[in-house]
Design a protein around this nucleic acid. Structure first.
Lengths: 161, 161
DNA sequence: GGCCTGAGTTCTTATGTCAAACCCAGAAGA
DNA sequence: TCTTCTGGGTTTGACATAAGAACTCAGGCC
């Protein structure tokens, strides 16, 4: 939203309470929340696994998860591994999953500007194998999330330096 | 990245330090930073205007701006309004501007899930007037940022309730 | 029953945020 | 020249939250 003159705009054209982005920052804005979302995006959902991988204090994780459940991004789902007891994993709700374009856009940005430009994750169309990315495009034509296939490529030989 | 069985994945396939998203969370990591980015996305760049609109303490704003300058997201640019002195506004660098798809994706998400679904900002192709959005699509075909036109629509009659 | 693993919770200390007071710089006007 | 005003910060102390470590609880197995 550039101003043809050099003078900065004095007030944003959309007030905070009408702006979806500003409202979203109340819910998804701190580093831990993002990191937790990333873990769940990858399918990691056990308390200890999340905690281990991102190195978050347990009390902080517990608090964030509660918040994310309350905000409808995450829910607790029972699962069993073998004969052990019923356990619970944290998984993204549909509402949480719809943050996928945001996470992927941030990933693209980070790959380009904070790394060497190489992506660590290939995203392709499940049906056609076409490589995908996040972009600003004419409305319509976006693939539904269930059509996405993710392929980690970080540990292929080219990526090992 | 769903797991066909019900067992959660134990470890994300891309380690933190290889994941562009995780790296980005170190840089854009708190609510104030996001809110400031949003202001600048809209072209608001004067210290006092940012401070007024998002209600951030001056010391916090000052510190965040310094960080964002250091991280290359923002730079200070001189400008003049009329005959007054040269002043400085904070503007997004190219690196910062390339967070536009992230901000817009978050806005779309927020409009849908935290509001009534109505967007407050129309995005259209400068050349064709085609409505645009953020989506996951085949590579290629994304519009460059300079082709985007933003039109606030929040205060049209339908939006006044 | 005890032991183990996993999922938290609690408490103390460290760090960040916030509000208010303060400072500096440049321009305009008397 | 001096004074006032606007704008852009900086500093300080109180308060809130985060972080680290210790602890508790629950369920299953031997």
């Amino acid at each position: 939203m550039s101003n043809p003159e050099d003078n900065p705009i004095r007030k944003s054209p959309v007030p905070l309470e009408q702006c979806g982005a500003a409202l979203a920052f109340d819910i998804v804005s701190d580093r831990w929340t993002w990191l937790i979302l990333r873990e769940m995006f990858y399918g990691v959902g056990r308390f200890a696994d999340i905690q281990d991988e991102i190195g978050i204090p347990k009390s902080v994780l517990s608090g964030r998860l509660s918040q994310m459940i309350e905000n409808g991004l995450v829910e607790k789902e029972p699962y069993r591994d073998g004969s052990a007891r019923t356990r619970h994993a944290y998984v993204l709700t549909q509402k949480g999953r719809e943050l996928t374009p945001v996470i992927l856009a941030l990933m693209q940005w980070g790959d380009k500007h904070l790394k060497d430009g190489k992506r660590a994750l290939d995203i392709t169309d499940k049906r056609t194998g076409t490589p995908l990315k996040v972009a600003i495009v004419p409305e319509g034509g976006a693939l539904p999330l269930r059509r996405l296939t993710y392929t980690p490529i970080w540990d292929t030989p080219e990526n090992k330096v």
